[in-house]
Amino acid sequence: MIRLIYSPLWFYGKDIVIDVISVIVLFLISFFSFRCYKMQKSKNHIYLSLSFFSIALSFLFKILMNFTIYYNVMETSKIGAVTFSYQTMRATDAFFFFGFLLYRILTLFGLYMLYSLYHKQSMPNFILVSFLMLMLTYYSQAAYYIFYLTCLVLLSLITASLMSNYKKNKFKMTKMLAWSFGIIGFSQIFFILVYIKVYYYVAGEIIQLVGYLLLLASFAMVLRDAKKD
């Protein structure tokens, strides 16, 4: 049985707002990177743009799924009919299954693409890892924490790469980016612990929001400081 709801009832909708903010930040960076690609025609820019776009798209699927589930749950609590809820969920099982599958695979794919920017991968390696991620996502539906654990590993590696870049270039924005990815990575630990208490989901979402806001601040500073020079 796939567990679909991690959020406590009072947090319904608030997590959607947090995810919408994350989507906006991710789309902004993806769009800017795409604009850079159009100017420079550099492969790195298009890969960066695609990785952020993939993560943004994954969040959109998560929002869509959560929105539908919360709507169903709220409607059911209003009517108070358990059978009705059961039937509604059964009718949309396939929808949720593919929705969450897409959310997870797009997140992992985006993070792996980002990781590949810092650790160049050969094409066979890229195909192999993508295939393994697909298998991992499919066969770990019940063990949801495997997905968050994989995100944690990828985000830690990306943070380490950014930190290593910062040691070389001493650029403040690189440090801020490293911190934001580090914080987003840290939030995954709370998502892993959701099975202990649902409140970890709230903590995870809030920490993730801090991470994405820091990412937005870093991006805004890059744009602002370049204009000041």
Partner: peptide, 16 residues
Amino acid sequence: LNKLKQMRDFEKAFGL
């Protein structure tokens, strides 16, 4: 030129 500087800083920040 401003856009170009933004792009360079963006590249530098991400280490591209």
